[in-house]
């Protein structure tokens, strides 16, 4: 089994719902985005296109981040999920330099969202801020997945642009979409073999 995600760029409207629902799900501190959305433009006026590109950890089958990690904190879990054990991480950030997809964030010195005004009751209840001095990233919401739910960003996406499932199962929705719509991995030439595929806009 290999967990994977398909993001349909034709459906995505760049609403940032994934970025923020992920933040809400994981209570990540400022500056840490397991999911994020970037906007790029291509072409010249008037043949211009604005591109919304949602990003997350691609849970690469050949994860350079894991190879670069000196402590084993970055490791591969069931279904190919790449995760960081925050109790083991030394914060050397080699994994950040190794990841070609900007999926990792160093939690330098977590501050609450309202800064000196202190943490909100939400942040206190969720223990957000996480561990100081470690690297954080998306874990495909493995807890949710193991409880039979879709990852938070998938469950919430208003445009139904995201689909989660087993890439190894040819009958799964993700496999079907990749087949039918010509799913592509980002920077496939790097040989990382991401488990996240994009469908053309």
């Amino acid at each position: 089994m290999r967990y994977g995600m398909v993001i349909d760029l034709k459906r995505c409207v760049g609403c940032y719902g994934c970025q923020l629902s992920c933040k809400a799900e994981h209570a990540t501190p400022p500056g840490v985005f397991y999911a994020r959305v970037v906007k790029r433009e291509s072409g010249t006026f008037p043949n211009t296109r604005l591109v919304f590109l949602p990003l997350l950890c691609f849970h690469c089958a050949n994860p350079p981040c894991v190879d670069a990690c000196p402590t084993g904190a970055s490791h591969v879990r069931t279904g190919g999920v790449v995760d960081v054990d925050h109790d083991v991480c030394v914060g050397c950030r080699a994994c950040m330099q190794a990841c070609p997809y900007g999926a990792r964030y160093y939690n330098r010195d977590p501050r609450p969202y309202f800064g000196d005004q202190g943490p909100t009751p939400y942040e206190t209840a969720r223990g957000s801020g996480g561990k100081r001095g470690v690297v954080m990233k998306c874990n495909f919401c493995l807890d949710r997945v193991q409880a039979g739910l879709d990852p938070a960003c998938v469950a919430n996406c208003p445009a139904h642009a995201r689909t989660f499932g087993d890439l190894d199962d040819p009958d799964s929705e993700v496999a079907r979409l990749i087949r039918l719509r010509g799913g592509t991995q980002l920077e496939a030439g790097l040989g990382t073999d991401p488990s996240v595929y994009y469908l053309p806009p």
Partner: peptide, 8 residues
């Protein structure tokens, strides 16, 4: 690496 779709 700037993350833009391969073959964008």
């Amino acid at each position: 690496v700037p993350v833009v779709p391969a073959g964008m």
